[in-house]
Design a binder for these strands. Structure first.
Length: 427
DNA sequence: TGTCCACTGGAAGGGAGGGCTT
DNA sequence: AAGCCCTCCCTTCCAGTGGACA
């Protein structure tokens, strides 16, 4: 056998059974434990579509990892299955009055597509196979995009169910123009009908909606509560059975620990699955045949550090410099800084790296963004005669984050100069 | 109680970049 | 080529703010 760098890894026994995606949050299992009632509720609303009528628009609320997207996509998959079964055999008589083929789903994640134009374009292009007829990603006036979208949907009789996931992101960023158009589209369609399912993490975004849009959109509302530790244990147990090659790969307590850690974080099933998957991967890498609690804690640290590293690495250059300025200015005790102090630090870094600095107003916005990302903690505080400003503090591990920023090539000159300055001070 | 500080945060608008239309 | 649309990133302007201080 030819030896190469993979040989020893290939020979070690895999813990996973074939498809490790089963432990990914995006995997939709055959059953969704503790969400049966919600599936049933949504199905009772959506069944109208199978009869060729427009189901009510639905708004679904719930924190991250509470199964909102999974439930909606579960139903979507069931409709696709019905279509397939109908092709292969005559469905039983219960479906005689229904026509599953006229139901079409369009799924848009508004965190990825977060502009009016983008959403309209994506929906319109779902109904066009011919590349040359696709709506371009920019260039058309909004009115034209809307007309094209309407025309395409209305080509034949059908019920189009548009799922807008992370809807709050779209509304807070680009307002409610899309929802205004989509919620009144039915009055302009001749043959087809459109129904909307909005999925959101927060109830708050409806405050930004025009009252007409709000009432049209929220014909039906569903709220998904967080999972508790026991429910998370069931979900994990279910996946473990499907995902692993042999029994007793992990103690009961490992599943319980993953569930308990995720339950502490507002009952997030996504986090529980990530913990389980990553701790298994760590065990596999250590060539340990069993996953133990130690692996779970390692996985927890890894997830937290990875989140910070990814968030920092994907920051635009100026945001990185602001973050860098905060980290360099705050000494070990994480002293609190003001906007003015951060800005002077940032300006210095700009000079060192040969970049033009942005205005203080713009930096104030970047500071808010960093706060929203959870990389810093910024609180508006008044110091009386000494003015009113933000009190800023890094909320990530200082040394590791500095290292991550310094790995960015565009900040390299800053790194070199900062080291030089530090060395000069020591002399 | 009024003043003052150091901003905050909203609004308006400029300009670059990507692309379509005429 | 000129004119237009849309988004994104940014600047400029300015009213508003909370609380220490005189």
């Amino acid at each position: 056998m030819i030896e190469n760098i993979f040989s020893s890894h290939i020979q070690s026994k895999p813990i996973f059974k074939g498809n490790r995606d089963i432990l990914r949050p995006s995997y939709i299992p055959e059953e969704l434990p503790h969400r049966e009632a919600y599936i049933d509720d949504l199905a009772s609303i959506m069944v109208t579509a199978l009869r060729g009528n427009r189901p009510s628009n639905v708004l679904i609320f719930g924190k991250t990892g509470t199964g909102k997207t999974a439930v909606v996509r579960y139903l979507e998959r069931e409709v696709e299955r019905l279509k397939k079964d109908d092709h292969e055999s005559d469905l039983d008589s219960a479906f005689d009055d229904y026509n599953v083929h006229q139901v079409e789903y369009v799924y848009i994640n508004c965190e990825v597509v977060d502009t009016h134009y983008g959403v309209m374009k994506n929906i319109g292009n779902k109904f066009i196979d011919n590349w040359s007829e696709q709506i371009p990603f920019t260039g058309w006036p909004m009115e034209k995009v809307y007309e094209a979208l309407k025309e395409r949907i209305d080509e034949k009789p059908r019920v189009v169910i548009i799922i807008l996931d992370e809807l709050d992101k779209l509304v807070t960023k680009s307002g409610d123009t899309v929802l205004y158009h989509l919620s009144k589209i039915n009055s302009e369609l001749k043959q087809s009908k459109v129904s909307l399912i909005g999925i959101s993490n927060s109830l708050k975004f409806t405050e930004f909606l025009d009252p007409r849009v709000k009432s049209r959109l929220g014909e039906e509302k569903m709220i998904f509560p967080p999972y508790n530790a026991d429910q998370l244990k069931d979900i994990l147990g279910d996946r473990v059975k499907k995902a692993f090659e042999y029994e007793k790969i992990m103690e009961e307590e490992v599943i319980a620990l993953c569930a308990a850690l995720a339950a502490q974080e507002h009952g997030d099933a996504r986090r529980a699955l990530d913990l389980l998957r990553i701790s298994t991967e760590i065990a596999e890498r250590e060539r340990n045949p069993e996953v133990n609690a130690n692996h779970v804690y390692k996985a927890k640290n890894k997830i937290e550090q990875d989140c910070v590293t990814e968030a920092v690495m994907t920051l635009p250059t100026h945001s990185k410099l602001v973050m860098y300025s905060i980290l360099l200015s705050s000494k070990k005790g994480n002293e609190k800084l003001t906007t003015g102090e951060v800005y002077s630090g940032y300006e210095e870094l700009c000079i060192k790296s040969g970049l033009d600095s942005l205005s203080q107003r713009r930096i104030a916005d970047l500071i808010s963004e960093l706060d929203m990302l959870g990389l810093i903690h910024a609180r508006v505080k008044s110091f009386g005669r000494r003015g009113r400003t933000r009190e800023i503090q890094a909320s990530v591990p200082r040394r590791e984050t500095i290292r991550t920023i310094e790995e960015d090539n565009s900040i390299v000159p800053v790194k070199e100069l900062t080291t030089l300055i530090q060395q000069t001070r020591l002399m």
